[in-house]
Amino acid sequence: MTALAGQPVTLDRLQPGVRLRVVQMADAEELAALYGANREYLRPWEPERDDSYFTVEGQLDNLHDLVGAYATEEMWPGVILVDGEIAGRITLNNVLRGPLQSCFVGYWVARAHAGRGVATEALRQALDVAFSALRLHRVEAFTRVDNISSQRVLERNGFTAVGTARRHIHLDGRWHDERLFERLAPWDDGIALTPPA
């Protein structure tokens, strides 16, 4: 994974100007400002955060952890760029190798970019990273059952709903049910562990 550090992933786009790249320590100030501006908007969907998380120092700590996990190939932590500015985050989490070859995806887009196809395009590009660069076989995602917008983003990218996990995540002060979605690699033939050479 580390060979991809800092390289943008750009494909023919549904939403012009959207691209992804791996997070960098230099993103701390921009991410702190973006998280701060979107704190209330993200509250229903994000884990509870201490006030320090929304500071530059808090983001430096967070980025340090993300860069470390990227270096050990546990995740692919990305930022979503719109016309070169950070507009959100997308992460391929819990990368599992061996017989699973899978990960979970999580993402968010700032309120100013919501409803414009940015998340849909960012996820499309992240799937290219997962299935091509990382050679994974499956990407999974959970969304709160009431997060219809996120479910539409997943469905537009070929994800299939698998089922519902009861009281799966504690967000915004209580436990919530979540729907599990999955997407198999386009090269899946039911036999091969990794894509053909």
Rank of each mutant, 00 (worst) to 15 (best):
V56W: 03
F54P: 03
F54L: 00
Y35N: 11
A37P: 01
E29L: 13
Y53H: 08
L34A: 12
E40T: 13
R43K: 14
D61Y: 02
W45M: 11
T55E: 03
W45I: 05
S52H: 13
P47I: 00
Y41K: 00
N38I: 07
T55P: 04
G58F: 05
H64P: 06
G58W: 01
A69E: 12
N62K: 11
G58I: 04
A28L: 03
D27L: 09
P47N: 07
M25C: 00
A32L: 04
L60G: 07
D61K: 09
E29A: 15
D65A: 12
G68A: 14
N62W: 14
S52C: 00
A28S: 15
A32P: 12
T55S: 10
G36W: 04
F54G: 01
R39E: 00
D65N: 12
R39L: 07
N62F: 15
E48G: 10
T55R: 03
Q24V: 00
A69D: 13
F54E: 00
L42G: 09
Q59H: 07
A37Y: 02
A69S: 13
E57K: 01
L31S: 12
E57W: 02
Y70M: 07
Q59N: 05
L63K: 01
L66Y: 03
A33E: 14
A33V: 15
A37I: 00
R21Y: 11
R39A: 13
V56K: 08
G68W: 00
Q24A: 15
E48R: 11
D27G: 10
V67Y: 08
L31W: 06
D50Q: 14
V23Y: 11
L60E: 14
E57L: 05
E29R: 15
P44I: 10
G36V: 01
G36M: 09
V67Q: 10
V23W: 12
E57I: 02
G58T: 06
L60N: 08
Y35A: 02
V22A: 09
G58C: 00
R43I: 07
R49Q: 14
A69Y: 06
S52G: 01
L66H: 14
D61E: 10
M25G: 13
Y53R: 05
G68V: 01
D65P: 08
P44T: 10
R21K: 08
Y35C: 09
E46I: 09
V22K: 09
Y35V: 00
P47V: 05
R49E: 10
L63P: 04
Q24R: 15
M25V: 06
D51K: 02
N38F: 02
A69T: 01
H64D: 12
V67D: 06
Y41V: 10
D51G: 06
A28C: 05
N38C: 09
L63S: 07
A26Q: 14
D50R: 10
T55C: 05
G68M: 05
N38K: 11
G36A: 11
N38Y: 07
V23E: 10
E30N: 12
L63F: 07
T55N: 00
Y41L: 03
Y53S: 04
H64G: 11
E40R: 12
E46F: 07
E30I: 04
A26I: 02
V56P: 03
L66P: 04
A28D: 09
V56Q: 08
T55V: 02
G58L: 04
L34M: 14
Q24F: 01
V67N: 08
W45C: 01
E30A: 15
R21F: 06
A28Q: 14
A26C: 08
N62S: 13
